[in-house]
């Protein structure tokens, strides 16, 4: 007999016992462990996802802040650049203005110096020329020259214009003081007589005439009464010549000042 019924029953019981044992020692613990591990993994994954999401959020925030910072920095930089440019321009303008002023002042000073020097030279030249002229004339001055001068002087008295002659005549007539005739050298008696007769003829008054000598007169004769003077002298010529040269110099200086170049142009060049 292939089937032993006791064995069948025993094996069925054995199998049921084994089922219970396996459930107790194998399936339940293993499945529970797997479940717990899966829960753990799920929790860790969820945690990782949360951390990742947090990190992403922080990253986004950081990026946003970074962008704002970049923008602010760019704005500040651009503002600073503009301010620096304008400051530079202002400083440059100031410096240029100061340089221009300085240049103009220096130019002015140079011009003044040059003018002063020029005037000094001219003055000195003038003085020298006149001194030479005076010296020459003084050296030449002598009796014959005096005679000639007297002739000229008398001629001039005769040729006085009407108004002047009247004023002089009335002056001579109204005063009691002697008429003074001043010369460089003493007149000879003939000269004195000629002068006296000429004055009398001209002014028609009998007045005492006093003859004086004056070393300041280079070559000339003066007729002086109260408040009036008629004179002829080379000094007069020289003085008028001096005045003429001075006027000429002044006229010459004026256009120079006008054509002086503008400081800006000079600077630009």
């Amino acid at each position: 007999m292939l089937i032993d019924w006791f064995t069948v029953i025993a094996q069925a019981l054995n199998f049921l016992i084994l089922v219970w044992l396996m459930k107790r020692f194998l399936y339940k613990p293993i499945l529970r462990a797997i479940d717990q591990r899966e829960k753990l993994i799920a929790a860790e994954l969820a945690d990782a996802a949360a951390t990742k999401s947090d990190a992403q959020k922080e990253r986004d925030e950081f990026q946003h802040k970074n962008e704002i910072f970049d923008q602010q920095r760019a704005a500040l930089f651009s503002k600073a650049t503009d301010e620096a440019k304008s400051e530079r321009r202002r400083l440059m303008d100031e410096a240029r203005q100061a340089a221009d002023d300085l240049s103009a002042k220096r130019h002015e000073n140079l011009k003044n110096d040059a003018q002063i020097l020029n005037q000094a030279i001219i003055h000195r030249t003038q003085q020298e020329v006149f001194a030479i002229a005076r010296k020459a004339l003084a050296d030449l001055a002598g009796t014959s020259l005096e005679e000639r001068m007297l002739d000229v002087f008398l001629g001039r008295l005769k040729t006085l214009d009407g108004e002047e002659k009247e004023q002089l005549t009335s002056a001579i007539k109204s005063t009691q003081n002697p008429v003074v005739v001043r010369t460089r050298f003493d007149f000879s008696s003939a000269q004195s007589a000629a002068t006296e007769s000429a004055i009398k003829d001209l002014f028609g008054a009998e007045r005492q005439i006093r003859f004086e000598t004056d070393s300041e007169l280079i070559s000339g004769i003066e007729l002086v009464t109260d408040g009036h003077k008629v004179a002829w002298s080379i000094t007069d010529y020289l003085t008028s010549m001096e005045n003429g040269i001075a006027e000429l110099l002044e006229d010459k200086d004026k256009p120079e000042a006008d054509v002086a170049p503008a400081p800006e142009d000079e600077h630009g060049a």
Binding site: L2, I3, V8, N14
Partner: peptide
């Protein structure tokens, strides 16, 4: 092997 016995396999089949 106990499964080489028809009694065992019959027991399992009965289960």
């Amino acid at each position: 092997p106990p499964t080489g016995s028809l009694s065992t396999t019959a027991a399992l089949a009965l289960c």
